[in-house]
Nucleic acid binder design. Structure first.
Lengths: 178, 178
DNA sequence: CCGAGTCAGTTGCAAACCGAAACTGACTCC
DNA sequence: GGAGTCAGTTTCGGTTTGCAACTGACTCGG
């Protein structure tokens, strides 16, 4: 039992972030998914791109396949050789990858992104955002509240965002990136 | 040198996803950030919430502090005890966390989210989306193209999304989540 | 002022994880 | 038919992880 699956003991039984990390919460797994999104489909190509050990790659791909995130489609028989392609479940991770990438662009590369993602229809650089469908506007972290889904008791808790922002203001000496 | 920092050998020197993962690409780190977003600020509370070993927690918090994602603000002297709060850099990770959470809601809990995030101003459940600011619309993964930022040669590559979707259609027998 | 309790963080050690290299089949190409 | 490629699997030693116990430095009640 590896660290990737051991969380079945469920300390936070119903946390979706934990559930997601149980599947993709591993540096190699996320980098493999990045490669898949970029169109890399072959074992050897990924191995070369990532510099990952082959046993690790084989292990991660089979986990992803078991999880239904990736599917193996044979491109050759005897010996069977597979392309690894994203399933709909895997494609749906694009927002997550994009959000991580956007953060890296902003904070690790001073905003000048190594690769820019643009809208295929008009060429405009894309952005990722939390939105309120009713107000039809982008919502800042300070305007987010969490609501218990079922078995919790606190309705409408303030997320840390606002509080943290306040607390942080009071100590402007800390934090490198201010 | 841990797995968290060893990537300075830079196989993909300018990949923002890799850069991001160098900082937060670790299951504990992301769960710690989740707690911070929820308003947990004390060492002992996090330790109890997460079930993480204290040395791990101390290590991760000091990494996050070094990275400027978290700041320590003392709430007591002799002995100095700290609140851990998100810096602006840390707050900016909310989109990433939300995207991971949304994915877990959809694919690990059949869509019935354990916790729902709503707009503080109107109570509407939020969504996270990739958007084109010019077209003012949500962009699906298949309509995304990648553009090299500077030192690459391939302008306007098709991301895997479209191709993978096609390839996957041709083999509808694979993949658990169809 | 004393002893119990709490809290943040460190140290020791066994277990789990990781990656390099070697190995295995089963081709493909000349 | 021999060399080369490809997708893994196995082996093995070093690194990392995490539990448990320990260390300071308080706080609190009396």
């Amino acid at each position: 039992m590896t660290v990737l699956e051991e969380r079945s003991d469920e300390r936070q039984p119903a946390c979706s972030i934990q559930a997601t990390l149980d599947i993709v919460g591993d540096r190699w797994t996320l980098l493999i998914l990045r490669d898949l999104f970029r169109g890399v489909r072959r074992f050897s190509r990924m191995q070369h791109d990532l510099g990952i050990a082959r046993n690790m790659l084989a292990d991660r791909l089979s986990r992803l396949t078991d999880a239904g995130v990736v599917a193996k489609v044979p491109y050759q028989h005897r010996p069977v050789r597979y392309d690894y392609v994203l399933t709909p479940k895997g494609l749906d991770l694009s927002n997550s990858l994009l959000a991580l990438m956007a953060w890296g662009d902003r904070w690790c590369h001073d905003g000048d992104a190594p690769t820019v993602l643009v809208h295929a229809d008009c060429g405009t650089p894309l952005e990722i955002a939390t939105r309120c469908p009713a107000c039809d506007e982008t919502v800042s972290p300070t305007r987010i509240r969490s609501l218990a889904g079922h078995d919790d008791t606190s309705p409408g808790r303030e997320l840390a965002a606002a509080g943290a922002a306040r607390a942080f203001q009071q100590h402007p000496t800390n934090g490198g990136a201010l």
